[in-house]
Nucleic acid binder design. Structure first.
Lengths: 192, 192
DNA sequence: ATCAATTCTTGCCAAATGGCAAGCCATGAA
DNA sequence: TTCATGGCTTGCCATTTGGCAAGAATTGAT
């Protein structure tokens, strides 16, 4: 039942299979139907989620009120608004299900209890945070050094599934361009 | 002697002044002369630094070998290449002193011992990591939603000291533009 | 003091991206 | 079925940014 969660916990090799099974025991099943919000801006994130099925989109609003996609999440990934969750502050971001989603979750209190009781899960938690940070740094570097077309090609390569679930305008803002430009880039790209 | 470090540890209010004094006791004094490298790409980051005086630049190289500034550090900040330090992997980034620097440092082993012995320092460590992550997310959002001129104005506002220590071409790549464009933006900006 | 290297600016032009509006297409609701 | 909505593309043109090269200014080394 929780095989995927257990497997995920052990991949880092910071947690043994036995430990993973016990840790997984504390997670509860969560369903988020399509279009429902896992987190709404203005609220304090209280849920840590291991996403097993489905896709989600993370987005914020810029000064003019425009919708800006800051991230996507897919199966076998942790979904978490780090800042709001750990600092207990109001989130500036929304997390919405692009498709029907299923996964395993912890509340803030549950996670802290588990961090306290399970040093290896604490290490695992740090590992996840470091990974998210590294991923974001890589994305920042690609934002600085690559053209929009290169970033598009990169996303198509690393996360092709997103194109089947998110509208292009969301993908465009994630890439830092307008939907108009993305459309043109796709046209050029398909010629090659 | 270590007042600044102690004050820094207590600002988060995760560490009491007494605890901070004891934690600070484990840090050793570090000097990095101007232009020296605190970390070189290809090596494994082994030093955690609280910078007390001076400025540093973090940079990587893109595919064409161009120098890209990914960050700056100034007084009262932690200097750390998170990914290499925690994963014990070779760094893709360099950290170089822009001016003569002084601060207080821990090695990887020292930090881990302290994390183990001092839960409050562990919490503090997480707090620093979360803050760095949040800062980077904000920067990513500004990269997507703001013009180069707005980003320039923002940096001038939040970190004016950098302009006295780093050459403009470094600041340009940090902002995601060429030095030519930055020069023009500065010209326009000074008219206002 | 001199020379070399680096930094910064500027002019010229090209390339990349954006803004807007129109139109087409697919989807879902009534 | 019809209608309304949202998603995607496209044409036209404006704006932003880049590439390159030249030159001035600054810095650093000898």
């Amino acid at each position: 039942m929780k095989e995927n969660l257990i497997a995920f916990l052990t991949t880092s090799s910071l947690v043994t299979p036995e430990q993973a099974a016990e840790i997984a025991g504390h997670f509860s099943f969560r369903e988020i139907p399509k279009n429902a919000f896992f987190l709404e801006e203005g609220k304090i994130a209280n849920n840590y989620l291991f996403l097993e099925k489905g896709f989600m989109r993370v987005f914020a609003h810029d000064i003019d009120g425009n919708d800006v996609t800051t991230g996507f999440a897919g199966p076998q990934q942790v979904v978490l608004e780090v800042s709001s969750f750990f600092n207990r502050t109001r989130s500036q971001e929304n997390i919405q299900a692009l498709t029907d989603c299923e996964g395993w979750g912890l509340t803030y209190d549950e996670l802290n209890q588990l961090f306290h009781a399970r040093p290896e899960f604490r290490e695992f938690g740090r590992h996840i945070l470091v990974k998210a940070f590294t991923t974001l740094k890589t994305r920042m570097l690609s934002m600085i050094t690559e053209t929009a077309e290169q970033r598009y090609a990169g996303l198509l390569n690393t996360n092709p599934a997103i194109f089947q679930h998110a509208p292009l305008k969301n993908i465009a803002s994630y890439l830092g361009i307008t939907d108009t430009s993305l459309s043109r880039i796709r046209k050029e790209f398909s010629k090659k």
